[in-house]
Amino acid sequence: MMLKTPPGAYAPQDGTAADLRVGGEFFEGDAVEAAFAEQVQRGVDSLGLSLIFFLVGGCPARFRSVGRAVVIRRIETPPEITRTDVQAVVITVRHTGDDTKQQATATAATTARSEAFWPGGLLSWSLFSSTDGRALLAYEQWEGDDALDAALALPVPYVPGIPGTESSAPVRYRLHRSHLGSTGEVPVGCVVTPVFDVDGPERQRHFIDEVFAMTQDVAPMAGSIAAHFHTSTDGTRVFNYAEWSDEQAHIDAVTADDPQGVRRRITGEIDGVRPCGYRRWHLHTSLVPTGREDVRPGGSAW
């Protein structure tokens, strides 16, 4: 497990004292606030390293939202999509060209994210590699928009998405509705992400309701674990985060007979909805802060 600290800045690991050490100098009591503010203004985090400190009384609330001493764990299971403390999701996709660049970018991004500042309110960061070797997907779970906005407004702003790739304004989503397929504890071996372009919030809701209505009497497909429908907050997209037991199970499902025409209707017969294709993904890395119930059965930590 990793305690994130910047060069020259240290804090006690038991969290029982409010102090800050920077560049060999020791600050305590009221001096912590002034020292911390000065380091933020100097951009201690500008090299992508965490400014970490313990806050135990005395420090004003405006600093408490900036960051805390936090241990980051790497887990080997995908994020828990339906966790109730998540109120905002940021999804980022970047194209890498080929599998060699994909893996190099994924490794570098994981290292950068695990060593960088971890903002308050970020509950998990997961990185997926597409099975075709051409893309990466980052799935971030946040406590809410306020936490994300605070991270974006820091003197050295948090940059969502995939470190080392071109940054852009975060695309925010809400989990709208989930459908559970398989029963029991079936490990998620593959994630499939059909994406749909839609004409506004009403079409988002209508499309998801139609999908559920079309499939309510259809037998669950072998290997299908769950489908989690997300809506973008700008009203333009529906993102289905579908969990499968393995890649082959999904291939078999999409090539099987479709006597009721469900696939045809979903992918082209609903007004104001346009399918944008899908990709299959394998988990590369999932990072979470300690002290939370984030690990599914079988998960482990650094």
Rank of each mutant, 00 (worst) to 15 (best):
W281L: 03
G58T: 15
E243M: 04
G164S: 05
G268M: 01
D234V: 11
T193W: 00
A219W: 04
I72N: 03
H250F: 15
A61K: 13
A222H: 07
E210H: 13
L20D: 02
T290Y: 10
A109M: 10
L287F: 10
I162Y: 06
V70K: 12
G291M: 08
D145E: 13
P187N: 12
V288L: 07
R203P: 03
D30M: 13
G299N: 07
Q102L: 01
M2T: 14
R264T: 07
T105K: 00
H95L: 06
A17R: 14
P275F: 12
L55E: 15
G144H: 12
R74G: 09
E76R: 09
G277P: 03
Q260T: 07
T233L: 14
V171M: 08
H228A: 04
S245I: 01
F36N: 08
T236D: 09
S178N: 02
T100S: 13
P79V: 13
P155Q: 13
I251G: 07
R203T: 12
E76W: 05
D149M: 13
P194I: 08
S126A: 15
V195Q: 07
T16I: 08
W118A: 01
D199T: 10
P187Y: 06
G29E: 09
F196L: 05
G189E: 04
R264G: 12
G291L: 10
G277Y: 02
T165P: 02
A112G: 01
R237H: 15
I225N: 00
P163K: 03
N240F: 09
Q141K: 08
F54M: 09
G261R: 06
H228M: 05
H230M: 14
R279G: 15
T100M: 10
V40I: 11
H179V: 15
G200T: 05
V71F: 06
W244C: 00
D217F: 08
D132S: 11
L123D: 10
R280I: 06
F54P: 12
A138Y: 12
S46C: 00
R62Q: 14
L47Q: 14
G15L: 11
V218Y: 05
W142V: 02
V44H: 02
L136F: 01
A31F: 01
G235L: 10
S114G: 11
I270W: 04
Q260L: 14
F27G: 05
D45I: 00
T82I: 03
F128S: 08
H284K: 11
V186F: 03
F27M: 03
E76Y: 05
T183M: 07
P6F: 12
A147W: 02
A61W: 11
Q204R: 04
G161Y: 05
R62S: 13
T5R: 06
L20N: 03
G261S: 08
D246V: 10
Q204D: 06
G43D: 04
L148F: 03
T16Y: 11
V86N: 00
S300F: 05
S178V: 15
P201I: 04
L122D: 10
T255R: 12
G164V: 04
S178M: 06
S129F: 00
A35R: 06
